[in-house]
């Protein structure tokens, strides 16, 4: 059974729909799947999640959660979905405990009833249970928000950018929790601008300017990358990128961590045999441009490379 079905959803903002946030989005998520919506700021992630959370109306298209229509059946839907907005949206002047019991009561349940579900997360919050939510660290706030969204054991969990404003360690813990939640059969739709988090999802959709560029498992997305990719480094990174872009064989070049990623124009097919000669050629070119400390490596494409390639291809 598909837990989430989205068909041709369109949403525009502004006078006469000047800004198109979502442009005919279709996707489906299986029950118990951890599905990621990956895209930069402004891609339309929040709009999509808000439509699914019954909070805004789509201009066109249909969407169902657990076979309930997000517009027609919104009242019934609201009691079986858990939603965590992108901004921290709990009461800062209430304590951890008070926030949790308030949301439990709002959903007509008690903390004890679904304690098993949140136990792993809540034990970390327990030492601070009398502290006001506003005084928690970013990671703790996010964990509390997740607890509040889970307190009624929702069938579908919608998380809007849960990793934003959270340190890397807390973010890792947060994703581990999501993995564990899958074992309870909860369908999770999570949006994130961090391409590296895509690897942690079962399947992802790459969203850009309101359109889906690709939708597959992270491995499938990476496998679809069609060009040879190199990671290049030298002592002058800024000039290096400029120079690589002018190299005749280059398709695209961008900074990627401490390396520059260089994609070639030619296809990946049969490239392996020529790889060494291309690398030597590249080394020579860079030396001729007086670069020092040159390092050229073959690189495995990540989801971010795929994302950049597909936005450039359009």
């Amino acid at each position: 059974m598909q837990a989430i079905v989205v068909e041709q959803i369109t949403k525009s903002y502004g006078a006469k729909g000047a800004v198109k946030a979502l442009d005919g989005i279709s996707l489906s998520v299986a029950k118990g799947e951890l599905f990621g919506i990956i895209g930069p700021d402004g891609a339309g992630k929040t709009s999509l999640l808000r439509i699914l959370a019954t909070l805004i109306l789509p201009d066109a298209g249909e969407a169902y959660l657990q076979n309930l229509h997000v517009v027609r059946d919104y009242k019934r839907l609201r009691s079986l979905l858990g939603y965590m907005p992108g901004r921290f949206s709990l009461y800062q002047d209430l304590s951890v405990q008070e926030n949790l019991s308030f949301f439990a009561a709002v959903f007509g349940t008690r903390i004890e009833d679904n304690y098993d579900l949140i136990k792993d997360i809540y034990v970390q919050l327990e030492p601070f249970k009398n502290r006001r939510a506003g005084a928690l660290s970013g990671g703790m706030k996010q964990k509390l928000a997740l607890c509040c969204a889970l307190i009624h054991k929702p069938e579908v969990l919608l998380l809007d950018e849960p990793g934003t404003g959270v340190d890397p360690v807390s973010r890792k813990e947060f994703w581990d929790m999501l993995q564990r939640l899958k074992s309870w059969g909860i369908t999770i739709l999570v949006s994130t601008p961090n391409m590296d988090e895509a690897e942690l999802c079962d399947r992802v959709a790459l969203l850009h300017n309101g359109r889906i560029l690709a939708m597959d498992t992270p491995a499938g997305i990476r496998g679809s990358y069609e060009r040879p990719l190199f990671a290049v480094r030298s002592d002058e990174m800024y000039r290096l990128i400029q120079d690589l872009r002018q190299w005749p064989g280059a398709y695209s070049c961008y900074a990627f961590g401490e390396y520059a990623h260089l994609a070639l124009q030619q296809s990946l097919q049969g490239f392996d045999t020529q790889a060494d000669s291309v690398m030597a050629e590249l080394q020579q070119y860079l030396e001729s441009r007086h670069h020092t400390g040159i390092e050229v490596l073959r690189a495995e494409p990540g989801v971010e490379d795929c994302f950049i390639a597909s936005t450039k291809d359009r």
Partner: peptide, 12 residues
Amino acid sequence: MGTMEVLLASPL
């Protein structure tokens, strides 16, 4: 504060 978003998405 954004809490209305959560309240609206609840069965209240």
